[in-house]
């Protein structure tokens, strides 16, 4: 980093910047917690379809209301994310198309529609339309204190819901058949989980953007899984890694001009993940190489199928 960039950054470290960083950190933490559950439920990429359709909602909310404040745009994004997930369910229910193709269709077509709308808005130069593209790759510099508080509150609610229903979610994730046989509404619990993921994807948009926000939900939990064999620890670590990645991303993007936040947050999370994959005790790559010498099968080898 050049000295001038450092100088330019210095005045940016105001009260505002800190509050915004705290809000984004809360989002990273909650995304890690919620993502841990969706990793356990074997649906780590469920958020990806929702993430790519959020753009349609951002553009539509702007077109319909003419406003560009964060609550309006994120509300639109949430509606679109849920619509994207509903489209996924409909495709599964009414067609022969397989799950992977259905996800790819929603991703491709949903993002295409979002791009088409955004480009149409930009080309017409509607007042206030500048900056909508920041939702593509994330840009936290424009957040206000009120925005940050909103993000933090939504994140806190999401974490609270996870903690409240942790017993139920763990049961369904581990053995859905047993859960159903003992009378738990598996479909409902899954819907709550998917909704939580959609909410996290939406509040993650300012930090990571539509294209990369999936990473907030996927990478920290994968890293956390390396270190523990207990669900509560997994949630704590997933949240911590997400929080750290978000802070690093926001800090670096505040200092480097024109650099979008999303990729930086993702790279920070990826660094944690790579380190975890390599050196974690027992599950890490190094530990396994060592174990193979001592002839004890690594835990992952016991996975069935």
């Amino acid at each position: 980093m050049s000295p001038t960039a450092c100088l330019a950054a210095a005045p940016a470290l105001t009260h505002n910047t800190l509050v915004v960083a705290a809000g984004v950190a809360a989002v990273g933490c909650a995304a890690g917690v919620v993502g841990s559950l969706s990793l356990l439920r074997k649906r780590p990429l469920i958020g990806d379809a929702a993430a790519h359709t959020t753009l349609v909602g951002v553009a539509a909310a702007f077109l319909l209301t003419g406003r560009r404040d964060l609550p309006t745009l994120l509300t639109g994004a949430l509606v679109a994310a849920v619509a994207g997930l509903a489209a996924l369910v409909l495709v599964r229910r009414f067609t022969r198309t397989r799950d992977d193709a259905a996800t790819a269709i929603v991703i491709g077509v949903g993002f295409g529609l979002g791009i088409a709308l955004l480009s149409g808005i930009t080309a017409r130069g509607l007042p206030g339309s500048a900056g909508l593209e920041q939702f593509l790759l994330g840009h936290t510099a424009a957040l206000t204190v009120r925005d940050a508080v909103l993000l933090a509150v939504v994140s806190a609610v999401a974490v609270a819901v996870v903690l409240l229903g942790l017993k139920e979610a763990t049961l369904v994730a581990f053995d859905a058949d047993f859960a159903a046989a003992t009378g738990w509404p598996v479909g409902l619990i899954d819907q709550v989980l998917v909704t939580l993921v959609a909410v996290m994807v939406v509040v993650g948009l300012p930090a990571a953007g539509a294209v990369l926000v999936t990473a907030l939900v996927v990478i920290p939990p994968v890293a956390a899984r390396q270190w523990t064999d207990r669900v509560p620890t997994l949630l704590v670590l997933g949240g911590t890694f997400g929080l750290v990645a978000a802070i690093v991303g926001v800090a670096v993007s505040a200092v480097v001009p024109r650099m979008p936040t999303g990729p930086l947050v993702v790279l920070a999370a990826a660094t944690i993940c790579i380190v975890s994959l390599l050196i974690a005790p027992r599950r890490g790559w190094l530990a396994r190489r060592h174990q193979q010498v001592t002839l004890e099968p690594p835990p992952g080898m016991r996975r069935l199928r």
């Binding site: 990793l39 074997k42 649906r43 780590p44 990429l45 990806d48 294209v211 990369l212 999936t214 990473a215 996927v218 990478i219 994968v222 899984r225 390396q226 999303g262 990729p263 930086l264 993702v266 790279l267 990826a270 993940c273 994959l277 599950r283 690594p298 835990p299 992952g300 996975r303």
Partner: peptide, 18 residues
């Protein structure tokens, strides 16, 4: 990481794109 296909893909492609 003893991960599912999805999780492995999710980690790698987002990281490389970033």
């Amino acid at each position: 990481g003893s991960l599912s296909d999805d999780a492995g893909t999710g980690v790698v492609f987002t990281t490389l794109f970033a």
